[in-house]
């Protein structure tokens, strides 16, 4: 469906032109290659530092080494940690055969999941507000089999996807969210009135309202740095080039090459996420190379911009409204008899 010249769904060649920018720079984004992420969280720190993002609580979450938990108003980069009893490609995890007992990861994960459920926003407050799930301290893992199995650590530095069809931007009623000349999606702090619509408009659970100032915040892809010709702070700080910044076209080429390379190395589970302009959000400006299903990292497997169905929704509403009008009319016509 389109609205005027504004398509609400499907691939878009040039998002910045569509948003009214003339003579704009090429669309930029991130390619986050999780296969080389070492979980140092330099990106989280650099982002907080550069953008003066306030702290969101210092709690132990019991999610492996992840004590951020989720993207939110006060976490614009979030490194996810997943421990799995399997090998990465032909890598030797170095623990096979050692008498260290089974991994306690699934036990910890179960405890955390149960506690998050009791939280007011079910754990959705992570990244925005402090949350202490009261995870039991680091005792020895529960007894079990003698050998630890193969082991791999999945790490992913998550970030706002800067969607081609951004749910947050589509629904924002004040114009606070806008599409920049770089094709990114940014909130204007002096406009946002904290209506909270964007929070529910984002199919990735990225943007959130900060309780202290009542306004919505998320990654700007370092709009200020881009305008000065600098790369975003997180990409700059990443020591392994897991976070790569560049023009989107180039990043997509590079990502395809990297997948082929990993497949050749035996990591056949390597796949791209968010790179496809035919997906539910028209492709992401920030996309990822994953080594497992997206949901394992907390990403939605099939995100769809809610405005895809806007036309259909208004049609249903139109029929319902007409029916209401007709009913109201008819009750008085009958009343005359």
């Amino acid at each position: 469906m389109t609205l005027g010249t504004h398509p609400l769904y499907g691939p878009v060649d040039d998002v910045a032109t569509q948003a009214g920018h003339v003579g704009h720079p090429p669309r930029v984004g991130f390619f986050t290659d999780t296969s080389v992420c070492i979980g140092c969280k330099a990106c989280e720190v650099a982002c907080k530092e550069w953008n003066a993002v306030p702290e969101d609580g210092f709690n132990l979450l019991g999610m492996s080494l992840d004590n951020t938990g989720m993207l939110g108003a006060d976490s614009w980069r979030h490194v996810a940690f997943v421990e799995q009893p399997r090998r990465l490609g032909r890598q030797d995890g170095g623990v096979a055969g050692l008498p260290v007992g089974p991994s306690s990861t699934s036990y910890a994960a179960g405890v955390v999941a149960g506690r998050l459920r009791q939280a007011e926003r079910g754990g959705g407050e992570l990244g925005t507000a402090p949350l202490d799930p009261g995870v039991p301290g680091g005792g020895p893992p529960p007894p079990g089999g003698a050998d630890r199995m193969d082991f791999r650590w999945l790490m992913l530095s998550d970030v706002c996807k800067h969607c081609t069809h951004a749910g947050c931007l589509d629904v924002c009623p004040t114009g606070a969210l806008f599409r920049t000349e770089f094709g990114t999606v940014v909130v204007q702090d002096d406009i946002c009135n904290g209506c909270g619509y964007c929070v529910s408009g984002c199919p990735f659970g990225v943007i959130d309202r900060r309780p202290t100032d009542g306004q919505a915040h998320k990654c700007t892809l370092c709009y200020d740095r881009l305008r000065d010709g600098l790369e975003p702070a997180c990409a700059k700080a990443c020591p392994t080039d897991s976070i790569q910044f560049g023009t989107l076209d180039e990043l997509r080429d590079r990502a395809r090459g990297r997948v082929a390379q990993l497949h050749a190395l035996g990591a056949t589970e390597a796949r791209l996420y968010g790179d496809d302009p035919d997906d539910g959000v028209g492709g992401c400006g920030a996309f990822f190379l994953l080594l497992d299903e997206p949901e394992v990292y907390g990403l939605p497997p099939d995100p769809v911009v809610p405005t895809r169905d806007l036309g259909r929704m208004w049609k249903a509403a139109g029929v319902a409204a007409l029916a209401l009008a007709a009913a109201a009319f008819s009750v008085f016509v009958e009343g005359r008899r």
Partner: peptide, 15 residues
């Protein structure tokens, strides 16, 4: 343990 979610955490931000 939940294998197909991230520590049972919601994917979306609750309203």
């Amino acid at each position: 343990a939940e294998v197909d979610t991230y520590y049972g955490r919601p994917v979306l931000k609750p309203p």
